[in-house]
């Protein structure tokens, strides 16, 4: 009897806590379907009717379409670059022995200790001098550079667990190192590489500070940057702001629903290594 009560209290508590965790998002998404009048009158009620007006308005007025395209270009290119460079570096670090190997591992590990925002000023001035500011590269390159340590460590750990028999057979067949990398290691490492890809995608899609400092040109702004500016300009137009935020959040929620276990494990592994 006592046990059943305990169980009931536990379930109730967990339910309430989960609702509290989700509430801000629930509120965001429901509010984005309301008109401003309805939002001010009943800010917490469920919308009386579903209208897509805010979304089309956000898309047009705030030029979210451009921001969405920029975010896709930057995120996809940086993710591809991260996966490729991460895999290549991990292949060498996990399969060859050479003098600087241990040093390189530590060198890449160091990057996880550096607070990203402390590199803002130097990166801004450095990229200013070589004319990289206000280009897609101003985001793609630093994003990749900062994600490389995690990408390399997740992939090295995975590749080290792949038995060497296949490669040895391939070497006997006369396959070169590149052949082994592209035809054996890359396909076999797909589980690790897909985790790297998902984590990079989420990180780049949501990234804010670099975009804030390195991008000034309106036509190059990514979604988080547009949202932050947008919220100042239209701060009283709640319905519009909420709809714009919902548009930005939906892709990441879909990713989360599809790859939950991988995201959880990957993020935990990435943070523990750092």
């Amino acid at each position: 009897m006592k046990k059943r009560w305990f169980h009931l209290i536990k379930v109730t508590f967990l339910s309430i806590f989960s609702l509290m965790m989700i509430y801000p998002l629930y509120w965001l998404i429901t509010s984005s379907f309301k008109s401003n009048e309805e939002f001010f009158a009943e800010p917490y009620a469920f919308p009386t009717s579903i209208s897509w007006g805010n979304f089309t308005r956000a898309w047009e007025v705030a030029d979210l379409g451009t921001a969405m395209i920029n975010s896709v270009i930057v995120t996809v290119s940086a993710t591809a670059l991260t996966v490729f460079l991460g895999a290549l570096t991990a292949y060498v670090l996990s399969r060859f022995t050479f003098r600087l190997k241990a040093f390189l591992m530590v060198f890449f590990l160091l990057g996880m200790l550096i607070p990203i925002h402390s590199t803002l000023v130097p990166l801004f001035t450095m990229m200013n001098q070589v004319g990289l500011l206000d280009t897609y590269w101003a985001l793609i390159l630093p994003y990749t550079a900062f994600e490389l340590p995690i990408a390399i460590f997740l992939t090295v750990a995975y590749m080290s667990s792949i038995p060497k028999d296949l490669e040895e057979a391939a070497v006997i067949d006369g396959t070169g190192y590149w052949g082994i990398f592209f035809r054996i290691m890359l396909p076999l490492s797909v589980p690790a590489l897909s985790t790297v890809a998902i984590l990079s995608f989420l990180r780049y899609w949501n990234e804010f500070v670099f975009a804030l400092v390195f991008i000034n040109d309106n036509s190059l702004k990514t979604l988080p940057l547009s949202l932050s500016i947008f919220s100042d300009g239209f701060s009283t137009d709640y319905a519009l702001t909420m709809a714009a935020m919902t548009i930005a959040v939906i892709p990441t929620i879909i990713m989360y629903l599809l790859f939950q276990e991988q995201i959880m494990k990957g993020m935990v592994a990435g943070s523990v290594k750092g």
């Binding site: 806590f17 989960s18 609702l19 965790m21 989700i22 801000p24 998002l25 509120w27 965001l28 989420l202 899609w205 949501n206 804010f208 979604l223 988080p224 940057l225 949202l227 932050s228 919220s231 702001t241 935020m245 930005a248 959040v249 990441t252 929620i253 990713m255 989360y256 939950q260 995201i263 959880m264 993020m267």
Partner: peptide, 16 residues
């Protein structure tokens, strides 16, 4: 539910 906020843009978190 508890893990969900991890994938939300920090800008959106700040704004909400």
């Amino acid at each position: 539910a508890v893990f969900l906020p991890m994938v939300i843009s920090t800008v959106v978190v700040g704004l909400i």
